[in-house]
Nucleic acid binder design. Structure first.
Lengths: 150, 150
DNA sequence: TACAATCGTGGGTTGCGCCAACATTCGGCT
DNA sequence: AGCCGAATGTTGGCGCAACCCACGATTGTA
């Protein structure tokens, strides 16, 4: 889990800006995630996890719906699903009622992989929030919910 | 200032994860920034702003020092500085005491551009934090400082 | 003087988020 | 029934941020 290259010193005009702080924090978070995926992710990335999670949560879906649910572009869904299918984590079959669509479902190995990734990601959450007190974590959740989906 | 493509619905295992929230918030922030730069940034990007800000703050520096200060890779510093120099926002001259180095300094037009970008970015901060109360903003600053530089 | 370190530079790569175009298929309207 | 527009999956591309590696030139040091 590599940390992002830290600035040695930060200009005053930046260091108190909310977007700057948020960006730095997100950089740390995504570095932690990338490191975790690299070390224990079997070559999978964020897109794969998000797709597996959506499939587990809502069951078989078309690729377009999957994209809308996850906020991933249709074209990126295609690519990520192909890799998931090669690994046998996901199955795609033509919807006979609508032959444009492909119904995607998660396989038992896919479920197992998802559970494993869950554990990996839980470790990342803990590493990220380590410097925060319990009260600060509550504030964090409250504030981030507002900023994430205003 | 386009918002990022939002997920229609979010899997339970994701929506409460700190990294997920942070990622979403950062996505919003960077979308706001990208939009602001695209509309009012004269074709400049984040790297350019960070370099100009560092130069204004600490005066002329070599490119390698500039990279260390800003957390930007040496090679990316080179590219961004070339674009800044083409626009006349920055000047580079060989350090006669050490001919490997190039001393970079900000020009008067560069300073003016930096001030202008400051105003643009101030607007982004306000847009980002709009949903937060004054107390929440204080918590935000406190928490983010911890997460950004642990 | 040989060697190691530093500097600027160019060329790649990766992840994520987009957009445009295309052929196929479906649905609604006339 | 026929036509047109919309949706679907796919390919290929772009941009940004963040990296890495390798090179020639230069410097400092052993």
């Amino acid at each position: 889990m590599r940390e992002p290259l830290p600035p040695r010193r930060t200009p005053d005009r930046q260091k108190d800006r909310p977007t700057w702080l948020l960006g730095r924090a997100a950089a740390r978070s995504s570095a932690l995630l990338a490191g975790a995926f690299a070390e224990q992710g079997d070559g999978l990335r964020g897109y794969h996890y998000r797709l597996l999670a959506a499939l587990e949560q809502w069951g078989p879906e078309s690729q377009a719906d999957l994209g809308r649910d996850t906020g991933i572009d249709r074209s990126d869904v295609t690519g990520a699903l192909q890799e998931l299918e090669e690994r046998g984590l996901v199955r795609r079959e033509e919807d006979r009622a609508n032959r444009r669509r492909k119904i995607v479902s998660i396989t038992p190995p896919g479920l197992a992989e998802l559970r494993r990734l869950d554990d990996v990601l839980d470790g990342v959450q803990e590493a990220l929030l380590a410097p925060l007190s319990a009260a600060q974590r509550r504030h964090y959740a409250e504030i981030m919910a507002l900023l994430a989906a205003p």
